[in-house]
Nucleic acid binder design. Structure first.
Lengths: 216, 216
DNA sequence: CAATATGAGTGGCCAGACCACTTTCAAATT
DNA sequence: AATTTGAAAGTGGTCTGGCCACTCATATTG
């Protein structure tokens, strides 16, 4: 039927081989020359399959050493495509909005989980806020991690990288009044309140960013 | 510095070239031989980059004709990633959660925009709901588009592909009761209500998916 | 005019050759 | 004997040039 696309067959064969041989993440898979011989294909064709899998983050190759099955729990689903996604959609607003969406969703997720609210962590951030060592990025990243959604964390991190970090500076004096309510609400599992406070804080930052000539 | 991974550079160069030359989806990109010449790389190396992009569904190649920027979504990405990754339940859950996050955010965004609520579109979906031609995917995609955040739309589409589409079937009878409230709330710009109704609907679907031994 | 043959251009695939790098292990040196 | 050295083997990274199968536009033929 579909005779073309030999390299796609190779992808499948490699997958099956990994299954059968019970190759675990981190293990080494046969060398390119071995595989080519075994599957009866040219080495360059085989490489087309391998490079594809590598770009997907499913395998990892190290020159001089070999090819290894990577831990695809850390798959780069988004990472790979991010350049393409972000490239033609350079709308900074979209990035900002989307990033905020993930942050807010993390807050909601955290508030729904009692165990997380009990953590001392919010207090520790309050302390940092006092002695001027508080940074928004640190705080938000902590929330993203706590939310438990690794995929969301990954997307957030990409957006964070892409949009730069105009917020990694320490908090301004009048900003503190916006941060405390967020911490308080989180501590008390007040979801609606936390979200609102966080939005207010974010809008304040957005406004400041507008004022300072923000450039990518 | 990192001299290896030439094919990754090629991926980037191709991306830049596409942007500069203003190549649109569906358009043809230069032949492999041309590109190899232009980028000063061997054809086989270039092909490694192209095959990778093809597996990602970003380009489409037709023997005898050429290589094209793909306009419609290629399912290779889904297929490959699922077979390699979908063993991890936590990953699947993350995908579902993240996808839902984007959908809900779209609803909120739509409700905040008066112009969108006035559209006849919700009515047209009601009609479809009656004559059994309603499909969840169509509806949600429409919402994602209307929300106006193209980045979110793209991410959503990826997740949609990735998590498969067990929802593209037509709606069940008892499902309709969950859908109407969503449409009503959207029409009336009742944000909170719309979100709640949508969540209820989604949970119903999630439950059904659990019951049917959903396996890829 | 219609059907057919041709040739140029394209992707699909392969074999063989270097290169750069890592590991290994035996020989040389201390 | 212990250490250093370096040569060899194995690996991925890349290039070249070739052949095949397919598509399409053109020219040729009936």
């Amino acid at each position: 039927m579909n005779q073309s696309k030999r390299y796609l067959d190779i992808v499948k064969e490699i997958r099956d081989m990994i299954r059968q041989e019970k190759i675990k993440p981190g293990d080494r898979i046969p060398s390119e020359r071995e595989l080519a011989e075994k599957l009866q294909v040219g080495r360059s064709t085989l490489r087309e399959a391998l490079r594809s899998l590598e770009l997907l983050g499913l395998i990892e190759t190290r020159r001089g050493e070999g090819t290894f099955l990577s831990d695809h729990r850390n798959h780069q689903l988004v990472e790979v495509l991010s350049t393409f996604i972000l490239q033609d959609n350079k709308s900074r607003e979209d990035v900002w909005e989307t990033r905020l969406m993930h942050e807010i969703s993390a807050i909601q997720s955290i508030c729904e989980n009692k165990a997380l609210a009990d953590l001392r962590i919010w207090d520790s951030f309050k302390v940092k806020l006092q002695d001027e060592s508080f940074q928004r990025d640190d705080f938000v990243r902590e929330m993203m991690v706590l939310s438990g959604n690794r995929l969301s964390l990954k997307i957030w991190f990409l957006l964070h990288q892409y949009s730069g970090s105009p917020y990694s500076e320490e908090v301004a004096e009048d900003e503190k009044d916006l941060v405390y309510p967020v911490l308080d609400a989180l501590e008390n599992q007040q979801e609606e309140k936390a979200v609102q406070a966080f939005k207010a804080w974010s809008e304040w930052i957005e406004k400041r960013r507008m004022q300072n000539g923000d450039n990518s």
